[in-house]
Design a protein around this nucleic acid. Structure first.
Lengths: 205, 205, 205, 205
DNA sequence: GTGTAACCGAGACGGTACGTCTAGTCTTGTA
DNA sequence: TACAAGACTAGACGTACCGTCTCGGTTACAC
């Protein structure tokens, strides 16, 4: 049917028909973000997104399997929680980590973010990509690892320190705080960091 | 909350008519548990529960505000996750905590529990009572505190140790593991405990 | 489950729950009629009927299998084509039949009825009840038979006259006229009647 | 319709580009016929036809206004109901007509044809061309007229006989039979013919 | 030859409606 | 009054098609 002798565009996605509309894609993600922030994941509906975006429902179903995938992509594209938290490399390990933790906890404890974060968690129970994206936004996958590794080379942490476990504990404490809000006093960020670094005994707590 | 004085003939909380049917209540909770475990929180419906329990929908709406409350009560009554995890008091703090953590992590990592736990998390994002109940089941509210306090009196932990923060970190790591499964190698339980106790440097990790 | 020893309310339709709402039923049929007349059978939608009637879609699907059944019932209830055509018994058979036919043909040929009648035919291809109802409205099932039988007793028709075939031919000609409009000159009604009565040769056509 | 004057350089029907693909046209009509016979007019879809024919939807919309037109053309091309019924000219008018009617009624009463004929009727309520085509297939436009005219010249019918009305009645009875199936006994064909020819009294009915 | 115009298959688009499912409320009859 | 049953309005679900538009590619005629 088609000429086999020429260059053969190896594995081109083109299969006939017009290309996917980027305009529609962005309108959908924007609508998703807007409604998610406004009403939460539980009251998010494909129907509502389609209407808000001025798009047919099929255009959504054509490209996304379900609403949690929409949320995941909106998150990736930065329509949801554009913040990115990274520890600084300017002070001691303990101080850099503590100030990072303080910023994250301030964000998480902000009542204005509560609904959104709980909704994100709800969406995440369905879609692993959302969990990954949240970790990434918290800096847990890159910057945090780097900072801790620098702590090792700087001699602030023993070479045997289980870096990923430390991160797991810190991120876990953050997520738990969204899931089941606990004590919110001012020193909590430092306290958590001190526990995982073993520096609390040295301090006058 | 209702009627503390008994036997008051006039204007009591008792308002005439038959008392609440315990039979119906239990049938509803049992049906909730069965459908929750079978299909997950996302596919749980009041309609389905009523049908499964052989009960009118109104009987459910009369006593519970929403489905997450049903799940919370089913959890409390032990129809869901009857397990209760408590650390032992028989060895060193580090060992008691590590074996507790190992048992919890084994439970959490069991693929057969994954759906249920994620569903529980999803339900928890809506209803704080569920989060509290999960903490309680993990022993985080009582036994764990006691074990750590004993660690202080035993001199295994300094008096200044921030017990609640330590628990926050451990429980957080557990919840995070449900939310976003990470590395599942065998030493993780010990490693996490060692980090929060500051005992990891002493060990040959 | 239920006590089999007592009176047993033999086959009572009542199975608990409120009785069917007559109000909703009539609102639905009225809406069906209105939209049918306005837009025709092809553009009739359950969704539109529900909206027009101020009713949930499920209430329609609960009681009617499809839209042609709605149309059939609207027809039965007289919301559609309330006219009823019956031949008179006052003149000769030929004259009574001819004037009946003239009235029917005038109705059928009225451009204002064309859409409705074609739509009725379309609905009838799906649902036999509609065809029956149309025959009934044309008087084909009762009055016409009676008039022809009177023709036999009056000696205007031989006792062997195949009455039902005569009616079949007349009704067929009417239906065909809706389906595929043909010549509409003034004498057609008489001509058709004369043919089936064998009276045309006697006339100066 | 196209190009009346030849050789006109400007504003000819030909406007450049390849001629219409006969292959595509036939594939479409064949697919239309297949799906029409398989699923009926109500479940016929342009989308389905395009897929079945291996053709783009636009190729259909380019040449046909709607699906009833596709059905009409499929009917014309003989993909649907290829039968053609014509009365013979070999016996008396009454016998030729009766045997024609018997054949037509056998065809119409065949349960295997019922769905198709009702679908054809449904399509016909939308598109007059279909009605015309059905008449033509029944022989109602040509052969039947000729046979009746021969009956006049043979003296079997008076010169005043309203031939088109007779045909109207016969065809009407046939169509009515599809629309609302009635008695199907064996003598019906003869009886109908006898009524319109006025020959029934002469017979021992 | 090289445009230009219309053809073709493919399929994305904004929509409408489908028939199903569930939410939460209301209305029966029975105990 | 609680209960089982179930009808009610409301509206989201995911699917099927509608008719239009847009690709990339392919003919045919006109220059």
């Amino acid at each position: 049917m088609t000429d086999m002798t020429e260059a053969l565009p190896i594995s081109t996605g083109r299969r006939g028909g017009p290309p996917r509309s980027e305009e529609a894609r962005l309108a959908i993600l924007r609508a998703t973000a807007r409604l998610f922030l406004e009403r939460g994941f539980g009251h998010l509906s494909i129907e509502g997104i389609a209407a808000e975006a001025g798009v047919g429902k099929q255009t959504i179903y054509r490209w996304w399997p379900g609403k949690s995938d929409l949320v995941a992509e909106a998150l990736i594209e930065g329509f949801l929680m554009p913040e990115h938290f990274a520890p600084s490399f300017t002070g001691t390990l303990r101080d850099d980590l503590a100030s990072w933790m303080r910023i994250v906890l301030d964000f998480v404890d902000d009542p204005g973010h509560d609904e959104m974060l709980r909704s994100l968690l709800a969406a995440g129970t369905t879609n692993p990509a959302i969990g990954e994206r949240i970790r990434e936004r918290l800096g847990a996958d890159g910057d945090l690892v780097h900072r801790l590794e620098k702590g090792v080379t700087d001699g602030e942490l023993p070479p045997t320190a289980p870096i990923s476990s430390i991160i797991e504990l810190l991120v876990g404490a953050i997520v738990l705080r969204v899931f089941a809000p606990s004590n919110r006093d001012d020193g909590e960020a430092e306290r958590l960091v001190d526990v995982v670094l073993g520096t609390h005994t040295a301090r006058g707590q």
